[in-house]
């Protein structure tokens, strides 16, 4: 496996993105957050953990059950899954932008199904930073932002650097008075 290094602020703020954006053209962008670049290797290893045993089982089956076609088929399917994860994941990470604006959070993501969601600061009910065991090893975290909304009531940003997620959470807290509905 790759040697996972924990570098909290390493890839943090790239240069602020100057391209005019639809939802937030006029607003001052305070900071642009990217996903953790090593996220791709996490996804790659994650996919490998599932694909390799499955392909191995297929090989065993093809040897013992005398279905020679199964093995190459499984290998092709497995390889394409890995290739898909790598390509899609790279595009996803490259496209992903999470901008902290003066008045809220603006999340732009997706490769085929793209969405840009704007969450005003005034609407954020609470936030949550989560880390699973593998994520902890890599120093990655997911940030959940909760609003009172019915369909976008819970917005999850997975794959942030832990330090970034905590920083964002602290930034989004505060300035609260009422219940925002």
């Amino acid at each position: 496996m790759n040697s996972p290094e924990v570098e909290p602020q390493a890839a943090a703020a790239g240069p602020p993105n100057p391209t005019p954006a639809p939802i937030a053209a006029a607003a001052a962008v305070e900071r642009v957050l990217h996903l953790y670049p090593k996220l791709l290797s996490i996804w790659f290893w994650g996919a490998l953990v599932f694909v390799v045993p499955a392909v191995m089982v297929a090989f065993v089956v093809s040897v013992f059950a005398d279905h020679w076609a199964v093995a190459p088929l499984a290998a092709i399917v497995g390889a394409s899954i890995i290739a898909f994860v790598l390509l899609y994941g790279r595009a996803y990470i490259a496209r992903f932008r999470c901008r902290l604006l003066r008045d809220g959070l603006w999340i732009d993501r997706g490769v085929w199904w793209r969405s840009e969601v704007f969450v005003p600061r005034t609407r954020i009910q609470h936030t949550e930073v989560q880390q699973g065991p593998i994520a902890r090893r890599y120093g990655v975290a997911s940030l959940k932002v909760f609003t009172a909304g019915a369909s976008h009531g819970e917005i999850e940003i997975d794959g942030l650097i832990h330090g970034d997620a905590v920083w964002l959470r602290d930034e989004l807290l505060g300035r609260h008075g009422q219940d925002g509905v």
Binding site: I23, W112, S115, F118, V119, P120, A148, H152
Partner: peptide, 22 residues
């Protein structure tokens, strides 16, 4: 609560977007 703009590949092909207000 939130404002979102989203599009699928079919949307982009036809030059359309969806705007959602939650």
């Amino acid at each position: 609560q939130t404002v979102a703009i989203s599009h699928t590949p079919f949307d982009r092909q036809r030059g359309m977007h969806t705007v959602s207000v939650d």
